[in-house]
């Protein structure tokens, strides 16, 4: 008889919408804290290489980056003036800035705390340890050189957390919500990092251009693999090719979107050749666009314009994802309009 039910593939586990939401945001915040580390590292590097020598004002230097992060209104509310110290403090330790590294780690931990029955104790402890480390450090001001050490430690602790997730979380729905959050955030933030270069606050000489791109590649741990692939010096076109369109490099936008797609289809059980909801449709559409795009077209149309559009498409995917599974409107503090 045909009514013998055979369980195929992944079991449909029940999961509360709120739990799914927390898993998704937990990993988004973790990824975001790492990306903020990257962003600050790159900018401090560029500042050392060229900014200071050229006598560019701190405001002109940092403002475009804060605009691209959507944080400039909050910054100007909290600080009397732009200075390297103020901006780094704002992005690293400031507790009133939800997308500072501290803010992200705090939010990641709050989400982890809310669902600690759903994640492994090792995972919670690693996140908690990261939080305790930052809370201790954040209480006193810190020199620029030890700032690099701190970023290094934060990133290592985040790699540890990701390793623990890999090693201890069952490959079920909860895992996929975390992967979705992680790669959605990563695709977005690699885009913004590239945009900070494309929309750089100053005319860059060739040498400066190179050192900017090297800083970006290094912050993505991509320098060595870039050189392996292209065997040339740093050329903007190749850097874009690599960080936007690589199918194999884990921080590349295309790679990240593919992982996102894999995760959201694992949640619904629908094969990637089809789509079963709006979030899958939008994600598939964006992937095929990147899949068949010609880089020269992007350059002709303007890299900045392209990256801005990409960002809004990714945001739309996030919105549809929340509508589909969480029934809660997306409230991303980093994108909240500022109120007085």
């Amino acid at each position: 008889m045909a009514n013998v039910k055979i369980e195929t593939g992944r079991r449909k586990t029940e999961m509360l919408c709120r739990v799914a939401d927390s898993l998704f945001w937990l990993s988004r915040y973790l990824e975001r804290s790492e990306n903020t580390c990257q962003m600050v590292e790159v900018h401090l590097q560029v500042l050392l290489d060229s900014g200071q020598a050229r006598g560019i004002t701190p405001r002109d230097f940092w403002n475009p980056m804060l605009v691209s992060l959507g944080d400039e209104v909050l910054f100007e509310k909290l600080y009397p003036e732009y200075s390297h110290q103020n901006v780094t403090e704002f992005l690293t330790f400031n507790r009133d800035n939800p997308s500072s590294i501290f803010g992200c780690v705090f939010a990641a931990r709050e989400n982890a705390r809310m669902i600690r029955d759903q994640i492994s104790p090792e995972m919670f402890e690693a996140i908690n340890r990261l939080y305790l480390t930052l809370r201790q450090t954040a209480t006193y001001s810190i020199s620029q050189s030890s700032l690099y050490d701190l970023f290094q430690r934060i990133r290592e602790m985040i790699y540890l957390i990701n390793g623990i997730i890999d090693a201890t979380i069952p490959r079920m729905i909860g895992y996929e919500f975390m992967r979705a959050g992680q790669f959605l955030e990563r695709a977005d933030k690699t885009g913004r990092l590239l945009d900070s270069w494309a929309f750089a606050p100053m005319e860059l000489s060739d040498a400066e251009n190179d050192s900017y791109l090297v800083a970006i590649l290094r912050s993505c741990s991509a320098l060595e693999f870039y050189q392996q692939e292209f065997k040339t010096r740093i050329i903007p076109r190749n850097v874009l090719q690599f960080l936007m369109l690589s199918r194999v490099f884990p921080r590349a936008i295309f790679f990240s979107l593919s992982e996102l797609q894999r995760a959201i289809h694992a949640i619904s059980g629908c094969p990637t050749t089809h789509y079963s909801n709006e979030v899958e449709r939008l994600c598939g559409l964006l992937i095929s666009e990147l899949n068949y795009i010609v880089l020269q077209d992007v350059i002709d149309r303007g890299i900045h314009e392209f990256l801005v559009t990409l960002h809004s498409k990714i945001e739309k995917i996030a919105l549809e994802f929340s509508k589909q599974y969480m029934f809660f409107p997306v409230v991303d503090p980093a994108n909240e309009p500022d109120e007085d």
């Binding site: 029940e14 509360l16 729905i173 969480m326």
Partner: peptide, 17 residues
């Protein structure tokens, strides 16, 4: 509380499916 909803005097929780 926000995970629960009552319909026709029956309590349900809101899951992703």
């Amino acid at each position: 509380g926000r995970d629960l909803i009552v319909e026709d005097k029956v309590v349900y929780m809101r899951t992703i499916y």
